[in-house]
Design a protein around this nucleic acid. Structure first.
Lengths: 213, 213
DNA sequence: CCCCTTCTAATCAAATTTGACTACTCACTT
DNA sequence: AAGTGAGTAGTCAAATTTGATTAGAAGGGG
C-alpha cells in the first residue's frame, strides 16, 4: 500500500480539524509531494474514501473565508486514530524498498512514546537482516551466483540498499537514545504544520531539483 | 512512471514473440513481482494498452496448447523498440527513490553497448550528486537544520540513500569496466528468460521472505 | 469414472492515481 | 472599468493498479 492514508490521517490528526487544502499544504511543507503520491487528486480522494469508511468525520462548513469554493472540514474519529497508529507501527517495522511509507512513518515517529519508537526501529533492523538472509539464500542458484548473469546485479542492489538502510536506522536509534527530538508526553511537541497564513517555503511551483527527473 | 512498460516491452522483445503468461513467467523469474507492480492484471493491461498505442503488434493465435483460454501473442514493433530504448536510457540516468525503474533498467542493461551503459551510469552519478547538493541547499532552513525538528530525519534518510546509491553505481561501473557480463555485440547474449517448459524456481506461491511485510 | 488439485491463461470490478481543469476572490495594472 | 495574475479549494475523466475470480485441460487417486 501507498503512504497516502497514513499521511492524510496524520495531517488531519495534527490539526484536529482540517480541510483538504490544509492537508495538502502540510504535506507540501514536508516535501511529501516529492517522495510520495500526495498530489491533490489523491489527497481529496483519500479524504472522501476514509470518511466513507468511518475513519474521518465530515463537517460541512461555510464558504471559504479567502476565495475559492466552500471547503469541507474533516476530523479524525476513534476508528481513524486506531487505524492511524496501526499504519504507523506497521510502516516503522516493515522493510520495503519503497521510501514513501518509511518517510511518512519517520514524520510521525514522535506520536509514539520514545521507548516504543526505538523498539519498533530495532524490530525493523531485525526484519531487514532476516530479509537479507532469506533473499541471499533464495536467489543464489546452486551453481553459484554467476548463473544469474547480470540479473544478479539486481539482487546485489537490493542487498546493498538493505544494508544501507539498516545502517541508517541504527544511526537514528542512537540519536533517539541520546535524547534527540521531543516525543509524545515529553513537553511541547514539535508540530510540522503551517500556522494559519504562514507562507510555505517548500510549496509546489517553486521548482525543486527533483523535478528534473 | 512505473517500471511496467519497460519490463513488458523488454520481456516481449527478448522472446521475439510472447503471450501474456510468458511475460508474466519471465518477470517472476526475475523476481520482478517482488519489487515492482508486475502483477497479472498490470501486465495484461500494459500489453493491451501498448498494442493500442502501436508499440506492440497483436497476433491472434490458436487455443492454448496446454490448457487454459486461447492466448494472444505479441511482437514488438519498430515504434515499440524505439520506446524501449528511450525508457531504458531514461531509467538508467534518472535518480529516483523508487527501486522498480532502476532494477528493471539493470535487468536490460546488456541490451546497450558496454560503452554507452557505462556512460549512462556515470551520468546517473552526476545527477545523484547534483540532486544531493540541490536538496541539501533547498531543505536546510536559514536558522540551521534544527528548525525542522525530527522532520529533518526524512531529508537525512534521502541523503543517506542517495550516497549509498552512488556508491553502488560506482561499484557496478568498475565491474563493467573490468569486463563483467556479456553486452550486445559481444557474442552469445545472456537471456533471462525461461526456456519452454522449464520450471520457474522463483514463481509466485513458493513464498518469498518479502511476503511477510 | 468421478473428484480433487495443479497448471495455464486471462478477465473483471473496484480502488487508486494522475494530470488537467474549474471556479471563485483579491490585489494590481492598464 | 476591464484585464491579468496569484492564491484558494476542489472536481473530473482517463489511466493504472489491485486482488479476486473464471475456466479449461491434465494428472492422479480411490
Amino acid at each position: 500500500m501507498s503512504a497516502i492514508r497514513l499521511l492524510v490521517l496524520g495531517a488531519v490528526r495534527q490539526h484536529g480539524r482540517a480541510h483538504g487544502y490544509q492537508v495538502r499544504g502540510d504535506l507540501e511543507y514536508w516535501g511529501a509531494h516529492e517522495w510520495s503520491n500526495a498530489k491533490p487528486g489523491s489527497i481529496y480522494h483519500a479524504l472522501k474514501q476514509m470518511a466513507r469508511q468511518g475513519l474521518l468525520h465530515v463537517h460541512e462548513t461555510a464558504p471559504s473565508t479567502a476565495g475559492g469554493p466552500p471547503r469541507t472540514e474533516y476530523e479524525i474519529t476513534d476508528a481513524g486514530t486506531e487505524e492511524y497508529f496501526r499504519l504507523l507501527r506497521e510502516a516503522l517495522v516493515a522493510y520495503d524498498q519503497k521510501m514513501d511509507v518509511q518517510s511518512a512513518a519517520i514524520g510521525f515517529l514522535v506520536d509514539l512514546p520514545r521507548g516504543e519508537a526505538v523498539a519498533l526501529l530495532r524490530e525493523r533492523i531485525r526484519r531487514i537482516e532476516q530479509w537479507r538472509t532469506a533473499v541471499t539464500e533464495h536467489y543464489v542458484p546452486e551453481d553459484g551466483p554467476e548463473q544469474l548473469g547480470h540479473i544478479g546485479e539486481i539482487m546485489n542492489l537490493w542487498i546493498h540498499r538493505a544494508d544501507s538502510d539498516a545502517t541508517w536506522t541504527r544511526g537514528l536509534i542512537e540519536r533517539l537514545e541520546r535524547g534527540a527530538y521531543t516525543f509524545v508526553g515529553e513537553g511541547e511537541p514539535f508540530v510540522g504544520v503551517l500556522a494559519e497564513g504562514e507562507a510555505n517555503p517548500y510549496a509546489t511551483g517553486e521548482r525543486h531539483p527533483e523535478d528534473d527527473r
